[in-house]
Amino acid sequence: MIQLDNVSKRYRRKQVLDPFSLTIQEGSSIGIIGPNGAGKSTFLKLIASLEKPSKGALSYEGQPYKQVVKRVRSAIGYVPQDIALYEELTVGQQIAFWKKLEKTKVDDDFLKRMVETLRLDEVMDQPVGQLSGGWKRKVNLCVGLLKNPSICLLDEPTAGVDLAAKEDIIAWLKELHQQGKTLLYISHDWYELRKLSDEYLLFAEKRPVFQGTETALIRQKEELLQSFDEQKDLRRILQHL
């Protein structure tokens, strides 16, 4: 369980996240939605321990992040929005490189299953730089989840990919969720969100304003739209419900 207690984030003069508290239960699959600039990516980075909160504190299994940062990093797999790969290396070299960097032992069976599900064996010898956007996303996902993490943080894992690649990614994430892993992923795609999420976290005006199931979100839709009347992007997101 991850707990965020009165956490906020500020970059010099820019407030990115206003103070908020929430809890992420083990094994949950949370779809993170909200307009651009609402603080979704920063929220994931805080959980991944890639950013420190300006105020407030995070805890993992009841212990402050500061004390268990290595354990947190062992448990977390993070897939950034950017393709954080070495374009010159082939897919095979890429996986081998990141596997070699991994301090904990990589589960080869898990890796093999992930490569098969994402159909990466078809492009193993091709340099990442020469692959299409969809393939790059799949390699990015594979490298991010290489160590078989118990908590998977995914920042728009299917952005800009074709339907076939998207289905491969969704299938794999579904399998991970069925294995009991915690999933937190940012997406703007309701098709994907509905297939994967058992609850939603809605961000608006630099903080999470809703956490709950789709049914609860539909119930609070009008109330939310009235509260954040000026947020046209929010209206656009919620109109799909």
């Binding site: 321990s49 890639l50 990093r73 950034p80 950017d82 954080a84 990141w98 960097l101 991994e102 490298v143």
Partner: peptide
Amino acid sequence: NSGRLARIKLIQK
């Protein structure tokens, strides 16, 4: 800038 360093930070702790 590409996020590779952040990934290394997570992988290598």
